[in-house]
Write a protein that binds this DNA or RNA. Sequence first.
DNA 1: GCGGAACAACATTCCCAGTAGTATGTTATT
DNA 2: AATAACATACTACTGGGAATGTTGTTCCGC
Lengths: 209, 209
Amino acid sequence: MNDLQPLPAGKVDSVQQIIDAAAQCFMAKGLEKATIDDIADVLAATKGRVYHHFRSKNAIFFAVHRLAMQYCFDAVAPIMALDIPADDKLFQMAVAHAHVMMDTLPYQRSIRLGVDIYLRGSTTEAEREVLRELIELRNDYEDLFRDVLREGQEAGTVDVPDVGLAGRAIIGALNGLVDWYRIRPGQSEADRAAIADGLARTILYGVKA
Amino acid sequence: MNDLQPLPAGKVDSVQQIIDAAAQCFMAKGLEKATIDDIADVLAATKGRVYHHFRSKNAIFFAVHRLAMQYCFDAVAPIMALDIPADDKLFQMAVAHAHVMMDTLPYQRSIRLGVDIYLRGSTTEAEREVLRELIELRNDYEDLFRDVLREGQEAGTVDVPDVGLAGRAIIGALNGLVDWYRIRPGQSEADRAAIADGLARTILYGVKA
DNA sequence: GCGGAACAACATTCCCAGTAGTATGTTATT
DNA sequence: AATAACATACTACTGGGAATGTTGTTCCGC
C-alpha cells in the first residue's frame, strides 16, 4: 500500500499495518466475526505477528478506536482555534468531520456501536478502564461541537431549542455517513467535497424554505 | 409489559415473547455475544422453546428486524396520508420517528449496523434473500422522507441543496437517538416529547439564527 | 572483527471454553 | 393417538489465546 516510502519502516510501521488491517476486517465482518486469523491474512502473515504486538483482540480494537478519535481531533481541533464567528466555525467543523468519516471509513465504522457492547463484555478491570478513557475521549470530542453551539447561541448567531439536543442532531447527521457512504471507484475528491458541504449546509440552515 | 391483555395468549404470544427477549439481549450484549441461552434465560425457559419456533439465530434476528421496521411504518405511514403542507408533514414524521426510536429502543438498537454485517456472514442463499427484503424495506421507509422532501422542494416550502443528502441527514440525526438515548427511571412522557420535538425542530429550522 | 549470546519478530501447534444446532425425551392438549 | 410445545442431553466446531519453535539482527567482550 505505502511500500514506496523512503523506508523508515521498522517497528512502528508494522504495528500500524496491523491496526489498519484490523480496521478493514472489523468494517467488513464486524467486531466479533472478524478473527485474528482474518487480520493476519490481510497482512499475509499469521497470528504470531499479531499477538507479538498486541495482548488481545480487545487491545487491537482499542488501538483502532484511539486512532479513529485521533483522526477526528486532528481534523477538527485546528478549526476550534480560528478566530471566526461561531456559526462559520461550526460549518467548517461539520465539513471537516464529514471528510474524516469518508477518509478513515474503516476506522470510524469499526467503532460504531462497538464501545458499549464491549464494555459489558470486558472481563478485566484494566480493559474497562481503557474503555472509559475512550468514551471520555468521544465525549470530549462531541463537546467541541456543543461548545461552539453555545458560543454561537450567546453571540446570537445560533438559535436552537436546546444546545445539547442540537449537538446530538449534528453529530448524528454527520456520523450517519458511516452507515450509508460507500467508497466507489469513480468518485472524485469533488464528489466527496459536495457531500461534506451539502451535509453541513443542510444541518446549519435546516430544510425549511 | 403487556400482561394485562384479555389473554388471547396462545401461540402468537409465545413467539412474540421470544422476539422481544431477543431484542433485549441483542441490545444488551450485541448480536454475536448474545446467545440463544441468554434469550431463553430472559424467558425463564430453555433453548428448546426457542428452537421450536425459530430455525436459527439468524431467523430470530430477521424477525426482530422485520418488527422494528413495522413499528416505524406504523407510526409514520399515517402521517403520509394527511393532506397538509410538506414541511409540516416532515416535522410530524420526524417527531413520530423519534418517538418510535425511544419506544422500541431494543429493536432499533438491535438492527443498527447489523444488516450489512450479517449479509456477508450469511451462508445460505435463502438467508441472503431475506436480508435483501429487509434492506429494501428500510430503503422504502427512508424513501418516505425523501419523497416528502421532494414534494416540499417542488412546492417551495422546503429548500435543500440535495434532496437525497438532506434525507440522509434527517435520518441520521433521528437514528442517532438510538446511540445516545438511555431509558432513565425518572423520565416522563413529556421529557420524551421534548426530545422528539427539539430534534425535529433543529432539523427543520437548522441551527443558524 | 569475530563467535556467540541475547533478543526481536515473527510462524506453528495445540488446548479448551463457549456456542449453534440436533436428537431425544416428556407432558399436555385436542 | 397424534401432535404441539416445550425441556434435557449431547455433538461438532470455531476461535481466542498460550506455549513453543524458528530465523534474522544486534551487541559485546576479547
